[in-house]
Write a protein that binds this DNA or RNA. Structure first.
Lengths: 134, 134
DNA sequence: GGAAAGTTAACGAAAAGTGTTTAAGTTCCG
DNA sequence: CGGAACTTAAACACTTTTCGTTAACTTTCC
């Protein structure tokens, strides 16, 4: 039975980073180049991103496809669309208008520019009204 | 930029499984042996476990060590210990007695037998009073 | 008991991930 | 500007993961 995704090296760098050390300082401590510290840190972040994405997939397994928000939609119109679709299948969405927009912004930041959705967004919903954006 | 931890094959199997298919049925669909479906499913679950553990590590980066609950402690005594330790460092724990026990049970199920803690449990806490069990 | 479902072990080949180095690039700030 | 911090790319040796096979084993349920 193995540990998480991160290697000892990666966790080491992240811990030192959390303490505020520069890459050069860490490089000196663990006896390597600062370029290497950079790549180790970067691959650690990549692993964390992949861990998150993996769990996101798990959630969508429990969820069903609700609708797709087309690119170009005004962000402020998104809640109404989602509430409407959810109502059709008799599910009460867990979020109000504001927190729904915030949740979307957090989970798909690069898909939201100013007030507009700039990528198609697939919306999933669970029986409990939890939302996921794909 | 890559996807999550799971391979196409692994996601495929998990989706069919969610639909209630047996390993043999899936094996027929994707043209392989049921033994292979089993190992693919198993490694998928292992990847999911690792993803969770990775994010747990991330939380402990933000958190500081609060105390260690020794093996053999009565579960119902755990909240008092934790509240006491948190008070010493002036942090208000986010949970009440009941939800604290539930949180512990969920996060470290195999460490809780009946009313007793059967493994040492390291407790971490954030400035916001969020708890993590290592 | 017997059939279907599921698990395990051993092994091989292909693919992917990791830690390094070196060298050339940023970006930020006084 | 100049320096410190940080990023990137190519290449390498090395380890790990993955998918697959075969064959034997356990569990579950009627």
């Amino acid at each position: 039975m193995k540990d998480g995704l991160l290697t000892e090296r990666q966790m080491e760098v992240l811990r030192y980073r959390k303490q505020g050390l520069t890459q050069q300082q860490i490089a000196d401590i663990i006896s390597t180049s600062k370029a290497n510290v950079c790549t180790i840190e970067k691959s650690a972040m990549e692993n964390i991103r992949r861990a998150k994405e993996t769990l996101e997939f798990l959630y969508t397994l429990d969820a069903t496809h609700l609708c797709t928000i087309p690119s170009g939609t005004d962000l402020f119109n998104v809640p109404a669309i989602i509430f409407g679709e959810a109502e059709k299948i008799n599910i009460k969405v867990k979020y109000d208008t504001i927190s729904l927009i915030n949740r979307l912004r957090e989970s798909r930041a690069q898909a939201c520019k100013a007030r507009v959705v700039c990528e198609d967004i697939i919306v999933y919903i669970t029986d409990q009204g939890e939302l996921y954006f794909g």
